Computed example of a mutant assay.
Amino acid sequence: MTLDQLDAAARAVGLALCGALHPKPEDSAPDGTQTLVLLGPDEPRFWDIFIASPEYCDRQPHPLDRWSKRVVATVSAPLNGTAIFPYDGPPYAPFLRWAERSGASWSSPIGLLVHRRAGLFISFRAALALPVRFDLPAAEVSPCQTCDTRPCETACPVGALAPGQEYDVPACVAHIRSPEGAACREGCLVRRSCPISAKFGRRAEQSAFHMRAFLGE
């Protein structure tokens, strides 16, 4: 199997390959891992697949996490892989480190991760620790290096996300809960401002779903 074939298997269930690396000892991958593969939503197909799932329809807690565990197993099992999920912990797996090590994601000017294809909409549903060493594509260059306008730096209406500072979560949450934050409840304005994100095809309903989860609703 090649990485392209693995990507096709992931897309068959609504996911896509978002990066891969050959882990070093300091990357904290499971013993015996030759290739670590990151999986995220296959936009825009993902949302329609997910909302038709039994996990979404049963109205029980954490539908996306439960869906992820079920479908990722169908991808990892044929490869004798170990599935790792960002929400299992503590300790939590270092997904941000893995993403940057993959050469497909980078730190943006505002500190959020930016992906070569998903922009600031990048998210990871799982990683696969595989006992097979796949050939990997060459590392790319961050799209931020060629972004002239950098709209992400000024998109947050309350400055909760801005260059040179930590993410001000309380200010962000307070604004989203206020009447003035109605637009943010449909999806983070900063993430939506990224030119790469704008081409990604994420559904507005999906962004709203994530914002409700962020608020604990």
Rank of each mutant, 00 (worst) to 15 (best):
G111H: 08
L112Q: 09
L112K: 04
L112S: 13
L113M: 14
V114L: 07
R116V: 14
R116K: 09
R116F: 12
R117C: 09
R117G: 04
A118V: 03
G119R: 10
G119E: 05
G119H: 03
L120S: 11
L120T: 01
F121R: 15
F121P: 05
F121Q: 10
I122N: 10
I122K: 02
F124C: 09
R125W: 10
R125A: 04
R125N: 10
A126R: 03
A129F: 09
A129H: 07
L130K: 11
P131Q: 02
P131A: 07
V132S: 14
V132L: 11
R133Y: 10
R133W: 06
R133C: 05
D135P: 06
P137C: 08
A138P: 08
A138K: 10
E140H: 11
V141G: 13
T146A: 14
C147W: 03
C147F: 07
D148I: 09
D148Q: 15
D148W: 12
T149E: 15
P151Y: 01
P151V: 03
C152P: 09
C152F: 08
C152M: 12
T154H: 14
T154M: 07
T154L: 00
C156K: 04
P157L: 04
P157F: 12
P157K: 14
V158S: 12
V158T: 15
G159Y: 00
G159N: 01
A160H: 00
A162L: 03
A162K: 15
A162I: 11
P163Q: 08
G164T: 10
Y167P: 04
D168W: 00
D168V: 02
V169L: 15
P170H: 08
P170R: 04
A171N: 07
A171V: 08
C172G: 13
C172Q: 01
V173M: 13
A174K: 11
A174I: 13
I176M: 15
R177P: 10
R177C: 14
R177I: 05
P179A: 13
P179D: 02
E180A: 15
G181M: 13
G181N: 14
G181L: 05
G181R: 11
A182N: 06
A183E: 15
C184I: 00
R185W: 02
E186W: 02
E186I: 07
E186P: 00
E186H: 13
E186S: 05
G187A: 01
G187S: 01
C188N: 01
C188P: 03
L189Y: 12
V190N: 06
R191E: 01
R191A: 08
R191G: 02
R191N: 04
R191P: 07
R192D: 07
R192C: 07
S193G: 06
C194K: 09
P195H: 02
I196Y: 12
S197Y: 05
S197N: 07
S197D: 13
S197G: 10
S197C: 02
A198E: 06
K199N: 07
K199R: 11
G201Q: 14
G201I: 12
R202P: 00
R203Y: 05
A204M: 12
A204E: 13
E205M: 00
Q206M: 12
Q206E: 14
S207P: 04
S207W: 00
S207F: 02
S207N: 12
A208I: 06
A208M: 05
R212D: 03
R212W: 08
A213Y: 08
A213N: 11
A213P: 06
A213I: 13
A213L: 06
